[in-house]
Design a protein around this nucleic acid. Structure first.
Length: 595
RNA sequence: GGGGUGGUAGUUAAGUCGGUUAUAACGCCGGCCUGUCAAGCCGGAGGCCGCGGGUUCAAGUCCCGUCCACCCCGCCA
C-alpha cells in the first residue's frame, strides 16, 4: 500500500515548480495530460487547474514505478513523488514549468480513466452537444477553467466592494409568488395547496424594496433569477444577477456606486484603469443617434434622420414613407465604396430579419454617385445629404425607409455589421454608457393597453408625474441601463415610494383595484408604513463575465448550462415524473391537444 | 411561432454527376524506442453516414417528414 495522501501530501501544484526548486523532493497530484514513451524513459505531463508539469519515469530509478508508468493513459488521476531536476539542454520554453521536470520515484494511480469522448484540449472544436453531455470533462479544459476562476474572482471583488460600502448581503426566497407582467414564470406546484403554485423569482424585486422599507438601507445579493423565455447566445433560463438596492438616493448615486464596483473589477481582473464618470445618454438620444437603447460606443458611424431632406423625393419608397409619417434613416459606411454590387445588395440580409423590406444604397465614387437610388436624388438633396452624412469620395451610404419601429432596429443592426466588418469593435476597448430616462410605459396596440417598460414599481421622472393621468406615453421613467460595448449589462430604477403613485401605476397598467390587491396587496400595504425614497440596479453577472473573458457564449461562463431548448444534456432533464408525484401535487398531464 | 446553419469512425472533417470494399488526421489497441514535450517508427481495430419514409437497378449523395445542436427574429417587466 502506498503512502500517498496519508504520508505524502501534495507539496506543490502542477504550475508552480521552477529552477529554484531543483533538488527538492516534491509530490504532485493531478491528471495525465499526455505521455511519450521512449522505452527506458517515459515522459508524462501531469495537469491540475494551476498548470502542467513534466514527470519523467526512468527504468534505472525504479523498475516497478517505471512499469506502472507504462500503463498510464490520458486522464488517469495520479500522484507522483520524486526529485525536481533541471532539464539542462532540454528546457521547454513553451511550458511555464518547462525549465524543470520531476524525476519520479513513486507513482500511484488513484483512478484509471476510460478514453474520454473528446480530448481535453483547447485547440479542439468539439460539437457542443457532446461537450454538454460530458460537461465535467469539458470543464477540465483550460479555456473554461480560466473563465470560472475569473468568475470566482469577480464574485469576491463584488462582495468585498459592496461590504466596504456598507451593503448587507441579504437573502430572499426562491419560492415566491407568480407575478403578472414581464417574463413567463417558472411555476412550482404546491403539494399542500392543491391547484396553487409558487413561482421562481424573475428577480427579487419586491423583496429588496421591502428591505428598504424595513430600514436595511443598503442591500445586495448575488442571486439566481429565472425566466421561462426563449434562449439566445447571451440568455439562459436561469442566470445570476448582482442585485443592489439603496435608500435615500437619486440615479447619480447609483451610477457612482456601480462605477466604483466596475472600476475595481476591471482593475483587479484585467489590470485596466477605466475613466469615470461613464458617459450618460438619454434613451431618446440613443434611439435617435443609434437606433437602439444599447449603442456600442466604441465607434461612431451614427444614424442620421434624413426624412426632412427627402420630404419631396420622387423615389416611391421614400415618398410613401414620408406620406404615412414614417422614418428614413441613413448611415454612411466610410470607405465602403469598394464593395461590389452583389456585396451591397447582399446587405439586405442584415436588415431583413428586422422587417425592413429594402435597403437603398449608393456609393460616392470619385466621378459620380452610383447606385439604384441616385437617379431619384436632386442636386439639392445630394448637397444636403453630403452635409448631414459627411459624405466623401469612397463612402457608401445606406437608407432604410419604413415605420420607426422597423427602421431603428434594422439600421442599428447594419451599423453593428459595419462596425464588425471594419474592425471597429475591438474586444480590448471598453466603452461604458449609462442610458437614462427610459419611457415609463410601452403601448401595446394589439391589446390597447400600456405595459411598464421596466417594471411596475418604477418611479416616473418627477417632472413628468403629472402626465401619468393625461399622456402616459410621454412619461419618462427614472430608469437606466448600464451598457458596455453594445451589451446591456444591467438596469435599474428609482422606485415609487408612495402608495398613491403606485396605485395610479397599477391603474394605468389596467389592473383593477381588486387585481392589484390580489397580486401586490402585501406591497401596497407595505408602502403605507413610511417607505423611504429608494432605488437600485441589477447587473447581469453572466454577461459581465462574458465581456471580461471574451466568451462568445453565455454557456462558457455558466458551469452547467442549458441548451437552446432549455434542456440539460448531462442530466437529461427535464423529465417526466412518477404518477404518484403528480397525484400528490394534484396535477394531471393533458395528453391530447398538447400543442 | 418563424428564418437560417449543421449532423459521416471516439473526435474533427473530406466524400465530385447517384455507381466497386465510405476516406484522412487526431484519438484508441499492440509492438519498438532513454530527451520527448502536437514525440517518432511499424502494425491493427473501429461506421445505424441522426432517425423514418420515398424515388431508383443502385442513395452518405436526390425528395418528403422528423429529431437534435447552434445562430437570429418574435419573446426576454
Amino acid at each position: 500500500m502506498d503512502k500517498f495522501l496519508h504520508e505524502w501530501k501534495r507539496t506543490h501544484n502542477c504550475g508552480e515548480l521552477r529552477a529554484e526548486h531543483v533538488g527538492q523532493t516534491v509530490t504532485l497530484m493531478g491528471w495525465v495530460q499526455g505521455y511519450r514513451d521512449h522505452g527506458g524513459s517515459i515522459f508524462v505531463d501531469i495537469r491540475d487547474r494551476y498548470g502542467l508539469t513534466q514527470l519523467r519515469f526512468d527504468s534505472s530509478v525504479d523498475d516497478a514505478t517505471h512499469n506502472l508508468a507504462d500503463t498510464l493513459r490520458n486522464e488517469f488521476c495520479i500522484a507522483a513523488r520524486g526529485q525536481v531536476v533541471h532539464r539542462g539542454t532540454n528546457v521547454n520554453p513553451k511550458m511555464q514549468t518547462g525549465e524543470i521536470e520531476v524525476l519520479a520515484e513513486h507513482l500511484t494511480v488513484f483512478n484509471r480513466a476510460e478514453t474520454p469522448p473528446f480530448e481535453i484540449r483547447d485547440d479542439l472544436d468539439t460539437a457542443e452537444n457532446v461537450r454538454l453531455k460530458y460537461r465535467y470533462l469539458d470543464l477540465r479544459r483550460k479555456s473554461l477553467q480560466r473563465n470560472f476562476v475569473m468568475r470566482s474572482h469577480v464574485n469576491n471583488i463584488t462582495r468585498n466592494y459592496l461590504a466596504d460600502n456598507g451593503f448587507l448581503e441579504l437573502e430572499t426566497p426562491v419560492l415566491m409568488k407568480s407575478t403578472p407582467e414581464g417574463a413567463r414564470d417558472y411555476l412550482v406546484p404546491s403539494r399542500v395547496h392543491p391547484g396553487k403554485f409558487y413561482a421562481l423569482p424573475q428577480s427579487p424585486q419586491t423583496f429588496k424594496q421591502l428591505f428598504m422599507i424595513s430600514g436595511y438601507d443598503r442591500y445586495y445579493q448575488i442571486c439566481r433569477c429565472f425566466r421561462d423565455e426563449d434562449l439566445r447566445a447571451d440568455r439562459q433560463p436561469e442566470f445570476t444577477q448582482i442585485d443592489v438596492e439603496m435608500s435615500f438616493v437619486v440615479p447619480e448615486d447609483i451610477y457612482g456606486m456601480i462605477e466604483g464596483l466596475v472600476i475595481r473589477i476591471w482593475k483587479h481582473v484585467l489590470g485596466v484603469e477605466l475613466q469615470t464618470p461613464f458617459l450618460r445618454m438619454s434613451y431618446a438620444e440613443a434611439m435617435e443617434r443609434f437606433g437602439c437603447d444599447k449603442p456600442d460606443m466604441r465607434f461612431g458611424m451614427e444614424l442620421k434622420n434624413v426624412a426632412d431632406i427627402l420630404a419631396s423625393s420622387t423615389f416611391n419608397v421614400f415618398a410613401q414613407t414620408i406620406a404615412r409619417n414614417g422614418s428614413i434613416k441613413a448611415l454612411n459606411a466610410k470607405g465602403c465604396a469598394s464593395l461590389s454590387r452583389s456585396e451591397l445588395d447582399g446587405l439586405i440580409d442584415v436588415v431583413k430579419p428586422y422587417g425592413a423590406k429594402g435597403l437603398a444604397w449608393f456609393k460616392a465614387n470619385a466621378d459620380a454617385w452610383q447606385g439604384p437610388v441616385v437617379k431619384f436624388l436632386t442636386d439639392d438633396e445630394k448637397n444636403d445629404l453630403t452635409a448631414r452624412l459627411d459624405i466623401e469620395t469612397g463612402d457608401a451610404v445606406f437608407f432604410v425607409a419604413d415605420d420607426a419601429r422597423i427602421v431603428d432596429p434594422a439600421m442599428a443592426a447594419l451599423r453593428l455589421h459595419f462596425g464588425d466588418r471594419l474592425g471597429l469593435r475591438k474586444s480590448s476597448d471598453y466603452a461604458f454608457l449609462w442610458v437614462t430616462d427610459f419611457p415609463l410605459y410601452e403601448y401595446d396596440p394589439a391589446e390597447n393597453r400600456y405595459y411598464a417598460m421596466h417594471h411596475p414599481f418604477t418611479s416616473p421622472h418627477p417632472a413628468d408625474r403629472g402626465l401619468m393621468s393625461t399622456d402616459p406615453a410621454k412619461v419618462r421613467a427614472q430608469a437606466y441601463d448600464l451598457v458596455l460595448n453594445g451589451t446591456e449589462l444591467g438596469g435599474g430604477s428609482i422606485r415609487i415610494h408612495d402608495q398613491e403613485t403606485q396605485a395610479e401605476m397599477f391603474r394605468i397598467l389596467g389592473l383593477t383595484r381588486a387585481q392589484a390587491e390580489y397580486k401586490f396587496g402585501f406591497f401596497l400595504d407595505a408602502l403605507r408604513y413610511g417607505t423611504p425614497p429608494h432605488g437600485g440596479i441589477a447587473i447581469g453577472m453572466d454577461r459581465l463575465i462574458m465581456l471580461l473573458t471574451g466568451a462568445q457564449s453565455i454557456r462558457d461562463v455558466i458551469a452547467f448550462p442549458k441548451t437552446q431548448k432549455a434542456t440539460d444534456l448531462m442530466l437529461d432533464c427535464p423529465t417526466e415524473v412518477d404518477a404518484e408525484q403528480l397525484q400528490e401535487l394534484s396535477l394531471r398531464i393533458r395528453t391530447e391537444n398538447t400543442k
